[in-house]
Nucleic acid binder design. Structure first.
Lengths: 206, 206
DNA sequence: TCGCTCCTGTACCGCCGGTAGGGTTTTCGA
DNA sequence: TCGAAAACCCTACCGGCGGTACAGGAGCGA
């Protein structure tokens, strides 16, 4: 029971790092069992096939992702009463967290799966879709709170505005990886932060 | 000569569609030769290995990508004298072009390769990096022109602002694919367009 | 007619995903 | 403490795939 969980976790750890570097197709099961110090039979005891590994990997990734967002934005809310200031602080904290990663963001599994769609069954694609929808709901809630207090200088759809957070993060990850500049991702988040600040700044200024 | 080029192009066409749907690892050479109606020997006559196929694919994709941006933004410049208005129009045209794709954007090869880095040699990674840097230079040039005329309401680094265009496009593609909502990508570009408009809007307004 | 481009055909190698099935140790609850 | 379930290991095998090797042939321009 306990031991099984641990081995399973170890496989997932190794697999996650490999998949984010080489994609699913580029990650072989034989390489995973070699690094985990397990046999092939042992692997297939835990996961029926590669698809089930992908599902477990994705679910764990999403869970962890949500936990991080929860922590950051609830801390921001504790420090700032105003919904706009709280959101802006959250973006700042997120940017700092990403800046502190020594090798940059390792990559997003949701994005990886997007570029692999045909290889996986509908269930995984649906998990992926739900993850993106959860992001939308999360940030939409924050923008709703902001709209209750502030009037934007430009009319924008709230869902699209909420999606912009995910867009900037996913796009920032891609750009960071392509450029081999880990700092790009946190920088892009701060640029987006400036845009949000601008959007809710009163039109008339002294 | 002529015939060879044609076959090569046909292989690349089939490969590009397959790679964007399943990634490189998920695309088998055997499947490519089956669809192209060629033999394995024929394939390896044109490409030494999968890595060379990837290189040819990437180079062709980037070339085509550049051509599209050239067309859109030069048309926008023809229609608008003002650099800001011209850029805003360009974003609009880009958004419309992407809206008209029946199945949404098929995916960006540069992003695909990012998530596959370890599978390819340094040369391909460098091509990828140069592509992202070319995007930066292109949009930086446009923002430089805008800064010559307008004063932004918030101080932002020009390179980071230029990168934001790529970020939004790449992120929009990922989100579009994850959500299975093709309209998200053009929508996100328009949200970004509003941000740019806001950034250069005079502080004082009637 | 020569030679080059552009292939086809055949045979083979080793890796990988996955299956099958038997055997062994570890763990934990009754 | 004992027994059963959990958590593996071992061996053998299959078919697909990336890639190699090499022989040969059709078409075509000089």
């Amino acid at each position: 029971m306990r031991k099984g969980e641990e081995t399973r976790t170890r496989i997932l750890d190794v697999a996650e790092a490999a998949v984010l570097q080489k994609g699913f197709g580029g990650t072989s099961i034989e390489e995973l069992i070699a690094e985990t110090g397990i046999t092939k039979s042992g692997f297939f005891y835990h996961f029926r096939d590669k698809n089930e590994l992908a599902k477990a990997l994705l679910n764990r990734y999403i869970e962890n992702d949500e936990r991080i967002y929860d922590e950051i934005f609830s801390r921001a809310r504790d420090l700032m009463d105003d919904p706009l200031q709280s959101f802006l602080l959250g973006l700042k904290l997120l940017s700092e967290l990403l800046s502190d990663l020594p090798n940059g963001h390792p990559g997003c599994l949701v994005a990886t799966i997007c570029y692999y769609e045909r290889l996986f069954d509908r269930e995984i694609q649906e998990i992926n879709r739900q993850a993106a929808l959860t992001w939308r709901r999360r940030f939409r809630g924050m923008f709703d709170d902001i709209f209750a207090v502030y009037t934007p200088r430009e009319h924008l759809d709230v869902d699209q505005l909420a999606d912009m957070v995910s867009t900037v993060i996913e796009g920032g990850i891609v750009l960071s990886k392509a450029l081999k500049e880990p700092q790009s991702l946190p920088d892009q988040i701060l640029v987006f932060r400036s845009f949000v600040k601008l959007l809710f700044q009163p039109a008339q200024r002294a």
